[in-house]
Simulated scan of single mutants.
Amino acid sequence: MENYDSSSSGYLVGIFMMLFSIPALIVWIISVAGMWKVYEKAGKPGWASIIPIYNVIVMLEIIGKPMIWLLLLLVPCVNIYIGIVMINLLSKSYGQSEGFTVGLIFLPFIFYPVLGFGNYRYLGPAGAGFAGHNPFDPGATYKDPFNPPPPPQQ
């Protein structure tokens, strides 16, 4: 090879990495700040959202699910389903619909800050029993499909 200078390609890679890593870092910080506020609104420590594994344990407390779900997250393919269900239950815990769940899954850097810094209120684990879930039926109550109500006593 004639007159090939590898340092010029190194500069280009460095510039390319800087141009993409700085916006990625900003998006990550915004997401972490949103999750921090979501945890605080639920009465949990905000710093718990940045500690691996412990953040899942606290999330299970927020959505009202047993710790066995932590083991389910270790099972391949099952973890994807359980993760989506957990995000949906988090959305429900703040009185939001499945559309908000889709936003939390695909655009977390937008929807977690909206949930954390917005006027949304934590309604309890999975928002069970809150009124006004359906805007067309203000008297409707949310029914959690994973925790059906007990049968009536006789």
Score class of each variant (00 low, 15 high):
Cys77Lys: 12
Gly139Asn: 15
Leu107Thr: 12
Ile26Asp: 11
Val27Thr: 08
Val13Ser: 14
Leu19Tyr: 12
Lys37Pro: 00
Leu90Arg: 10
Thr141Gly: 10
Leu73Met: 09
Glu98Val: 15
Tyr4Phe: 09
Pro145Thr: 10
Phe20Ala: 06
Tyr94Pro: 02
Gly132Tyr: 15
Arg121Asp: 13
Ala131Glu: 15
Leu115Arg: 07
Lys143Pro: 08
Ser93Arg: 01
Ser8Trp: 13
Tyr39His: 11
Ile110Glu: 09
Gly95Arg: 05
Gly95Phe: 01
Tyr39Val: 02
Leu89Trp: 03
Pro45Tyr: 08
Ser97Pro: 02
Ser7Glu: 12
Pro138Asp: 08
Pro145Lys: 10
Asn3Phe: 07
Val13Glu: 14
Gly132Gln: 15
Asp144Ile: 15
Ile22Gln: 04
Phe111Gly: 01
Ile29His: 02
Lys41Cys: 00
Ile51Pro: 04
Ala140Trp: 13
Gly34Trp: 01
Gly14Leu: 13
Tyr39Ser: 02
Val78Asp: 06
Ile30Pro: 00
Ala126His: 02
Phe136Asp: 15
Ile15Glu: 10
Leu104Val: 10
Pro23Lys: 06
Cys77Tyr: 15
Phe136Thr: 13
Pro45Met: 07
Gln153Ala: 14
Pro145Asp: 14
Ala131Gln: 15
Gly132Pro: 13
Pro138Lys: 11
Arg121His: 14
Ala126Cys: 02
Val78Lys: 01
Asp5Val: 00
Ser6Phe: 06
Ile105Asp: 14
Gly118Lys: 02
Tyr120Thr: 00
Gln154Asn: 14
